[in-house]
Design a protein around this nucleic acid. Sequence first.
DNA 1: CTGTTAGCGCCTTCAT
DNA 2: ATGAAGGCGCTAACAG
Lengths: 336, 336
Amino acid sequence: MKETITIKTLAKELNISISTVSKALNDSYEISIETKQKVWDLAKMLKYNRNPSASNLRSHKTKTIAVIIPEVANNFFSQAINGIEEVARKRGYHVLIYQTHENTELEIAFTDSLLSGRVDGILISVSSDNNNHEHFATLVKEIPTVFFDRVYEDIDAAKITTDDYESTYNATSYLVECGCKKIAYLYALNNLNAGKQRMSGYRDALSALQLEYSDKLTVNYDKNAEVNYHNIKQLMLHERPDAVISSIEDLALPCYYVCNELAISIPEDLKIISFSNLNTAPLLNPSLTTITQPALEMGREAAAILFRILDKKHPEPNEWLTLKSTLIKRDSTACR
Amino acid sequence: MKETITIKTLAKELNISISTVSKALNDSYEISIETKQKVWDLAKMLKYNRNPSASNLRSHKTKTIAVIIPEVANNFFSQAINGIEEVARKRGYHVLIYQTHENTELEIAFTDSLLSGRVDGILISVSSDNNNHEHFATLVKEIPTVFFDRVYEDIDAAKITTDDYESTYNATSYLVECGCKKIAYLYALNNLNAGKQRMSGYRDALSALQLEYSDKLTVNYDKNAEVNYHNIKQLMLHERPDAVISSIEDLALPCYYVCNELAISIPEDLKIISFSNLNTAPLLNPSLTTITQPALEMGREAAAILFRILDKKHPEPNEWLTLKSTLIKRDSTACR
DNA sequence: CTGTTAGCGCCTTCAT
DNA sequence: ATGAAGGCGCTAACAG
């Protein structure tokens, strides 16, 4: 550990005052270009690094944002982080990551701890098993926050989501066009706006196309994977749908397993459409048509909105932006 | 913005001194239990949050670690982050994320900026187009660093990798057992130990099994995806291998495309094994056998090693840990 | 344009 | 067991 070098070191070395050095390093307009240059040169030579803690303490700016998500190891969220990090880096910001694992306690612990001023802003995709939004109500008053993908309508903050309603509506229509008459729905995220919207899109499309909705054709997500498997199997055995829409990737999986076990051929006997952000399309089972959300763009946009707020020049307060998903049809024989 | 509450607030409220409050909050032995309790209660009531910047400035501990990786939106790395975050959270640490996108300039910028004392330690998986390791040599002297998965042997720091050599050796042997006689290799990460080890495993297995190695059966990764596609196509057309081992997922993809275009059936005409950490196995094309690295465990272990170093009680200095990959055989008909 | 003076909130001797 | 005082490194008034 060699001696740490501070602006004081630079000041002494150059025989100028500490504050001049500070201003020079911050490229202040009130310092002559020659002085600045001298300071910069010496700083580089000595490999000076500003102490962020000291700087933050004084300026109340951390140049850091927090990202709170349910899970990193998820194609959607990891792509979103990618976009966030990209935008943040370009602005010289640092990115902290927190995973809630859908655990409300953890989520509260994170948001509470961020109240300490560790970050300038927060990007969050809320956890789903969450019924009280109180901690968010206080959070958004204290610190600039943008909700992305999984949002609460009742919270007064900026939001960005995808077209959850339209995407399932269109997917359902597409299946009907393909001749499907009995379309099942695997329902998840029931506590979230996104989940409800997706369900509504499915239901409204059915009724618009003169098909009847039935609870029997719906399977609700359960935390227990075996329960999901069992429920989907029952659905297949007793209802024999000719198509399935899955609101999350995690329910499409057991659906595949079940088909395998029951020797239901895909897509001849059953067409499957799932929300999915798998980034390796061609490795996929070619029969899986997906509703793919623009995760990278959402990350970028969410960060952009946050920075606009931090810059104190966001056009309209608490905008709610909606991006479009894409229905990627991988089964070329499905519709002809 | 209501008034921010500090230890000073607590002190005034309780009519005790600031330093007593500070010590109480830090659970110091020299404070009576009654006083501590009073302080804790009030702190909770007032939702006091210690200001991290001030604390860091004094104590030189940030309770923060940095993770530097090529890409978040990658199944291996996102799973690794998952493990890292999990371990860090349990220790009350915060996790900063930086993506290099395989860009050495960026990598250097990140490591340099971390020299400022923003973090207590670093976990890094190096970018591949990197020939000079100087910045790491200085980095590891200044700040505890653990290299994971993509490491440089010549850097004196703790490392953790998987069995790159054995995994391709075993994969090659497996293919030979299956009757393959002409096994191609898609070569990537050439600048990295991991890439070289994988190649060696392949070559050594070939020669141990009396098969000849030929450059013609090897395709080198190119940054340009079209070039990869073209090269793989040439390989298929001119060499007609009966098996392919891909050192990264990104080369398995064009391989699939090519097979599709040339109407080469998988796995009848061609067996493919690829390194891959896709977490949705059943959605996969069932013919893809994968070499899957224990990403989550690696993240956990890497973090654990770092914390052991930070705790100043790591058993042996700069240990190099190796974890085992798994050959997941998804083609049940391949070997019989 | 440059320098002086106060702290930011917290921790840490050193006294009491 | 508690308190007083100083300073971590930097920035933000305010003077000159």
